[in-house]
Amino acid sequence: MSRRARGWAQTWAGVAAVLVLAEVAARTELVPSRYFPPMSRTFAELAGQLGEGAFWAAVGQTLQGWALGLGIAAAFAVPAGMILGTSVVRYRAFRVIIEFLRPIPSVALIPLAILVYGAGLESKVFLAAFAAFWPLLIQTLYGMQDVDPVAVDTARVFGLSRLERLTRVVLPGAVPYLATGLRISSSVSLILAVTAELVIGAPGLGREINAARVGGATELLYALIIVTGLLGWALNSGFATAERRVLHWHPAQRGAR
């Protein structure tokens, strides 16, 4: 118990040391405070923002793009993965296409998105969904292909129908893979949502950050970056916690990160 307390103290001592160091460096002009304002001013700005409606609107817009992107990606990727992953013939037929499309950097489609959907929410969601689709598809495929053959044979011996085999044997076995896929896709979706806001100018945190830079509001710039980081961290740890809950009964999860 005391050992754990000591580890906790060391962790927070590290954080405090970095914050104090940044504060001192800026106050003494060791780093130009024009670029690196003192941490205290950044956090004061952050506290002020928490009372602003516009700030919360931007957070909401970013989260909306993230959620819609992830949701649409899941709606397509999971069924597609199930269809392709349960048959060698179907998988082999589409393998080459997947291998070619997957490494395309999703941001290459930004011009196309602007052209087709304009500079609003639709572009953001399209990009986020496209990028989030691939990790989830791949994980679903792995999950379908990693089903224990003994379990499937057992189910057949006991006369389970095809549909029952899918819902009782294949899907439960694939759940850890889906959880991993969702976690990866969630962070990809957030990255692309912020990218779209930044590059295309769709409303949200990304656009606000850029506006803060252009307007010379340095404290606001840092405050918003910190908020974006906290958002990413919260989503990450939410999914990681959920994943651990799911993995806890499934020891065979491996190789996916």
Binding site: W12, F36, L190, I191, I209, R213, T228, G232
Partner: peptide, 29 residues
């Protein structure tokens, strides 16, 4: 382990920032 405990939260936070959000910062500096 000590380095890991001290740097842990900073690493967690650093990697959680969606990378494009760092672009305006990098342009500024």
């Amino acid at each position: 382990p000590l380095a890991r405990r001290v740097a842990g939260p900073l690493v967690e936070f650093g990697r959680a920032i969606p990378p494009p959000a760092l672009l305006p910062f990098a342009i500024l500096v």
